[in-house]
Amino acid sequence: MSVQSEGAPAHRPTFAALSARDKLAKSAPFLLLPVLALVGLALIGTWPTWLTLTVSGLAMGMMIFVMASGLTLVFGLMDVINFGHGAFISVGAFVGISVLAGLGDWTGAASLALNIGAVLAAVIAAMAVTGALGWGFERVLVRPVYGAHLRQILVTVGGLIVIEQMIHVVWGPDEIFLTRPEMLKGVTLFAGAAVETYRLLAVVVGLVLFVAMRMVLRRTKIGLIVRAGVQNGEMVEALGYRLRLVFVGTFVAGSALAGLGGVMWGLYQEVITAGMGEEMMILVFVVVIIGGLGSVEGAFIGALLVGLLQNYVAFLAPKLALVSNIGLMTAILMWRPEGMLPVVRAK
């Protein structure tokens, strides 16, 4: 074996340029959002109505994304599909709203700082409880059934029922109505349209979370390991990383995010029920499927699409709103059977 010391070999690799068509196919999912928004504008006609609907659609989408992100990553990492994810949404909402109710002085005051403080306290409590619950859930229920999808689905559905029923036992069987903190009530005038203040806040929180999650996944070492684990877990383990630990961490983080989503959704709807998580799970599943199982970006686009479409359709043809999500899912699966941005697995 001779050592080459003359520098780089003579040949120059060139990358074939993508054709315009391929480029379009690659970015098509990202273009769907503006296209949908423009079609919505054309059909709705008036700017303020459209803006109001768009903001509420985006707010809804962001909240769904917060709930869905953990689920899709957990699936990507360990091939675990957690049907009990919805339970964390409900538990988060109940814990958060209980904390808010306890901080009545803060939420009732007309001070933005106190209001935000109360919401923050509620969010932290909810995330702590659901994170801990997620840890227990993984340890007790999910761990014994790795690699067996059928039993995973059955066991996690069982877990969902038990947790939901325990909410009934602890908080009673009735739904709980609530009012938002003083400064988050009412509407804000924004670019010529009246938009609910809380929805703007939800959009901002969702965006910040998405950017933060992307930064963590793209710029940090742990993010690198998670992404690598999604693509080829065995290789990551062979390199000496304890993927199990990473997975448990992701599971806990995903559960905590579901709890956060629950608090946000509860404040959005101003009513919470033990079954809300189960209802949201339907949307979360639609989002995760159309985004491509395991893909965070896909879930983000999917969630915004679902949110926008639902709001537009509810305005244009209220009867159709019930099936709009199923229609969207059908359309996307006909176009890309694996979802919009399927995770490419090295296998």
Binding site: L154, V155, V157, G158, G159, V162, M166
Partner: peptide, 8 residues
């Protein structure tokens, strides 16, 4: 609740 426990 009990059905769920039994189920698991």
């Amino acid at each position: 609740l009990w059905l769920g426990v039994l189920f698991i």
